[in-house]
């Protein structure tokens, strides 16, 4: 009786997702391993011989790595500061963090076009101060993509870290102090290790998010392709569905790989976290 009830509740959702997501995804992956003559990995071999594609893959990984590092460096201290605030101020700061997170990525990337463009705010400011004599080319470079992605994902890592840091008992910090730890030692020996779970989840979110983001590189990258814009280009502009499927599979593989590496790292750093 209970069993039947349970299946009845779960079945519609499971069926829907299976038909409209799982099957399309697995078919996408599956077709890349077959051609007219049967099983093959020739498509992948060709791919990894292609300098142009390798270039794009490496650029994307590099951009994602820089974005993640910058997000941690900016987000960790800010999150620590917010987690120490009083209840009301903390809530307000969190709202300010969440707001950009909920705002359209088109709006957020567009705002950077206004700022770092040739006639943008930054160039005008630097020109008027006489620090440069011709406008800097920031927009439509990997740097522009990194700036846009940091802006996109920084709130995510802050919010994740605040959630973890809030749960660090203040008595632990006091205990460390009473055992002779300076403020710096409390930070490096207690707060940082206990924030590792948040740092790992946050880094995964940022890295994977940056690796697969489309809107930001599409708007800020110009001719600079990253893997997601390359996928889109092959699927829509070039109509190369086989190539697109291979790119899609590689993206899924890299995503899974990154998540498992980070999780392994987390286990090593924090055996009983």
């Amino acid at each position: 009786m209970k069993k039947r009830y349970l299946y009845l509740l779960l079945l519609p959702g499971v069926l829907f997702l299976t038909i409209f997501m799982i099957v399309p995804i697995f078919l996408t992956i599956g077709t890349t391993f077959f051609n007219e003559s049967g099983f093959t990995i020739q498509g992948y071999l060709d791919f990894f011989k292609d300098r142009y594609f390798i270039e794009i893959l490496l650029t994307t990984l590099r951009v994602s790595l820089f974005t993640t590092i910058i997000c941690i460096l900016l987000g960790f201290p800010a999150a620590y500061y917010i987690s120490k605030l009083g209840k009301r101020t903390k809530a307000i700061m969190l709202l300010f963090t969440i707001f950009p997170l909920l705002t359209s990525p088109v709006v957020r990337s567009f705002s950077w076009m206004v700022i770092i463009g040739k006639n943008g705010v930054i160039n005008k400011l630097l020109l008027s101060m006489g620090l440069i004599d011709k406008p800097l080319d920031i927009l439509y470079t990997p740097t522009a993509i990194i700036i846009g992605l940091v802006h996109l994902f920084l709130p995510l890592i802050i919010v994740t870290l605040v959630g973890v840091m809030e749960n660090i008992e203040t008595d632990l910090l006091k205990a460390a102090e009473s055992l002779g730890a300076s403020r710096l030692a409390v930070f490096s020996k207690v707060i940082i290790p206990l924030s590792v779970p948040g740092l790992v989840i946050g880094s995964i979110l940022v890295f994977v998010g940056s690796f697969t983001a489309y809107t930001t590189p599409a708007l800020l990258g110009g001719k600079q392709r990253v893997i997601s814009t390359f996928l889109y280009q092959n699927a829509i502009t070039l109509n190369e569905w086989q190539v697109a499927s291979i790119v899609a599979t590689i993206m899924i593989a890299v995503t899974v790989l990154i998540i498992s590496i980070m999780n392994g790292l987390a286990k090593k750093l924090n055996p009983k976290g």
Binding site: E169, D171, L172, A175, E177, S178, A181, V190, N270
Partner: peptide, 18 residues
């Protein structure tokens, strides 16, 4: 605190979980 060399035992133990 960290220069006093007094030992403190907390109500909730405050052991470092990591």
């Amino acid at each position: 605190v960290n220069k006093r060399n007094f030992g403190f035992v907390f109500q909730n133990y405050a052991l470092f979980p990591h």
